[in-house]
Computed example of a mutant assay.
Amino acid sequence: MDEPSADRLKEALRADGVRITRQRAAILKVLSEAEDHPDATELHRRARDVDETVSLATVYRTLAALEAQGIVHRHVFEGTPARFETTNLPHHDHIIDVESGEVIEFASDKIERLQAEIAEELGYEVVRHRLELYCRRKPRRS
Results as ranks from 00 to 15, higher is better:
50 V>Y: 07
89 L>V: 04
126 V>P: 04
4 P>N: 06
117 E>K: 13
93 D>R: 15
129 H>I: 01
15 A>E: 03
46 R>K: 14
23 Q>W: 05
62 T>G: 06
10 K>C: 13
138 K>R: 10
81 P>C: 10
32 S>E: 04
126 V>G: 13
11 E>R: 14
69 Q>S: 14
87 T>M: 04
39 D>F: 08
39 D>V: 02
29 K>W: 03
137 R>K: 10
54 V>F: 03
34 A>I: 04
130 R>I: 08
45 R>E: 12
4 P>S: 12
120 E>P: 03
71 I>C: 06
42 E>T: 14
61 R>M: 06
74 R>H: 00
140 R>P: 09
11 E>Y: 02
130 R>T: 14
87 T>C: 12
2 D>A: 07
89 L>H: 15
79 G>H: 08
101 G>M: 01
124 Y>R: 11
34 A>V: 02
43 L>K: 00
20 I>Y: 14
45 R>M: 05
112 E>S: 07
105 E>G: 12
109 D>H: 07
139 P>G: 01
4 P>H: 09
108 S>I: 04
129 H>C: 03
84 F>D: 07
97 D>N: 15
8 R>E: 13
94 H>P: 13
18 V>D: 12
115 Q>M: 07
107 A>M: 05
113 R>Y: 09
99 E>R: 00
17 G>Q: 05
73 H>V: 03
131 L>N: 13
43 L>I: 13
124 Y>Q: 11
90 P>D: 12
57 A>F: 09
86 T>S: 09
90 P>I: 05
64 A>V: 01
41 T>E: 14
136 R>Y: 00
50 V>T: 12
84 F>Y: 15
99 E>P: 00
